[in-house]
Design a protein around this nucleic acid. Structure first.
Length: 333
DNA sequence: CCAATTTGACCAAC
DNA sequence: GTTGGTCAAATTGG
């Protein structure tokens, strides 16, 4: 059915510009890394480079906010439904003026969770399509709206929007909103292993002063698992992305995070590591996403919280959320 | 018959 | 007034 794929819309920055920005960010992050860890161990060097650090951080942050990322914001690409689906034979128009009492409202402000580009629509979750719209930015490519299949029975409020990628019609840009609160047996994650080698804890991304920015590439699921274990062991976890529920990151965390990003290949920052080899997280919140706590401004603390998703995995608390939306789901594949 | 999709309408936010 | 997210009747396939 589908839809017109292939339409290249207008809209944000050119893909190569995005790439340039990303590459530049990586270089700057690498510089940060070397400054923080590296090669110049002396304290005087560190003092002298404080300003450079700030400049680098500013540069990275401004790029994160730059219009380059707008190419990833919802509004580019086109929707397509892969799962076969039903067709209408003849559109028998309107059934009459059935007026709804009260609904049809705009986005319920479910928290934006992440945005990915993928060639596969299948993400391990069960979704039900509830709408499709032609979007201004890309009239040729409608946007499809999905919600969790378990919404009626379990009240799971997770939704996602799917469009085909503007730059690559064989890819989809999927924006996830809200968190899965459902417990579909097919998607329930494994249970935390009670006993794991303590050495594995080193894989936990943590920016605390105690452990430093020790990290290594770790599978997202393992990472979340380790985080659970770490929290169980240490009730007063130091600053880590996983624990930064508040969008406010200390500058310390932010700089550490920048250093972290440099220690990883670019693919770890914007690249592939989520569900399928073809899946990649390419962005964080859409430019227009209304971050809580009034951080939409331009300062570093305001923009950095989006970075956890940029690192390739959304972290958040598990299960024990009191039903509010300050959490991000960690179960998603 | 039931469940999932399609699609125009409705409505809130810009 | 326009845009985009959601609703729900109509439709279709299993």
């Amino acid at each position: 059915m589908a839809s017109p794929d292939g339409g290249v819309g207008d809209g944000g920055a050119e893909p190569h510009e995005v790439m340039d920005d990303l590459l530049e960010m990586r270089e700057q992050a690498a510089m940060l890394h070397s400054m923080l860890h590296g090669t110049s161990p002396s304290s005087c060097a560190a003092a002298a480079s404080t300003r450079q650090l700030n400049q680098l951080i500013d540069g990275v942050m401004s790029r994160l906010q730059s219009s380059s990322l707008s190419v990833m914001s919802p509004g580019g690409g086109g929707g397509r439904r892969g799962s076969g689906g039903r067709k209408k034979k003849g559109t028998k128009a309107v059934a009459g003026p059935h007026r709804r009492s009260s609904s049809g409202r705009r986005r319920s402000k479910s928290p934006f969770v992440r945005m990915v580009t993928t060639k596969e629509l299948e993400d391990g979750r069960q979704w039900r399509k509830y709408g499709q719209k032609h979007i201004q930015d890309s009239p040729n490519n409608p946007r499809s709206y999905y919600r969790c299949t378990h919404r009626p029975d379990q009240g799971c409020m997770a939704t996602k929007q799917v469009q085909t990628s503007e730059s690559n019609s064989s890819e989809f840009v999927i924006s996830y909103y809200g968190e899965h609160t459902c417990r579909d047996p097919s998607t329930i994650p494994f249970v935390v292993e009670a006993e794991a080698p303590a050495a594995d804890y080193a894989n936990l991304i943590s920016f605390g002063s105690s452990g430093g920015a020790s990290t290594s590439r770790v599978d997202p699921l393992r990472q979340s698992r380790h985080r659970l274990m770490a929290e169980a062991v240490d009730p007063t976890p130091s600053c880590s992305f996983a624990n930064c529920h508040s969008p406010v990151l200390s500058s310390e965390c932010a700089s550490e995070a920048a250093a972290l990003s440099s220690s990883l290949p670019l693919s770890a920052v914007v690249g592939s590591a989520v569900t399928t080899p073809s899946t990649s997280i390419v962005g964080s919140a859409p430019a227009d996403y209304d971050w809580p706590s009034g951080l939409a401004g331009g300062d570093m603390a305001g923009s950095f919280p989006s970075s956890p998703s940029s690192l390739g995995f959304m972290t958040g608390s598990f299960g024990n959320l009191p039903g509010d939306d300050d959490d991000m789901f960690g179960f998603d594949p």
